[in-house]
């Protein structure tokens, strides 16, 4: 149990210190992308997710139609 730290421990300690302070630094920095320009991108993300949801429903609808088409073709 020596009093001195090895080089590796020192580096780990240094990295821990650095990353420990990153969140504190980030709080003082500019707001992130979603919160910039009065948080308008939150509205953009909302509208985009509604669009994606409708597209998923259309995709399911298309699968049903294809299945039906296949059944009809098998009979003829």
């Amino acid at each position: 149990m020596g009093q001195t730290f090895s080089m590796k421990n020192k580096i780990i300690f240094l990295l821990l210190m650095v990353f420990h302070f990153v969140p504190i630094y980030a709080q003082n920095a500019e707001p992130d992308f979603m919160r910039s320009v009065g948080k308008i991108y939150v509205v953009v993300a909302t509208i985009a997710s509604i669009f994606i949801g409708i597209v998923i429903l259309l995709f399911l609808l298309e699968r049903r139609i294809s299945k039906l088409e296949k059944q009809l073709n098998n009979h003829e």
Partner: peptide, 22 residues
């Protein structure tokens, strides 16, 4: 029920996005 459920799920997703940033 299909389209109502879609609206409900989208309501949850859009609400979560809104909640994250407020």
């Amino acid at each position: 029920v299909v389209s109502g459920t879609l609206f409900g799920l989208l309501g949850l997703v859009t609400g979560a996005i809104w909640a994250k940033n407020t």
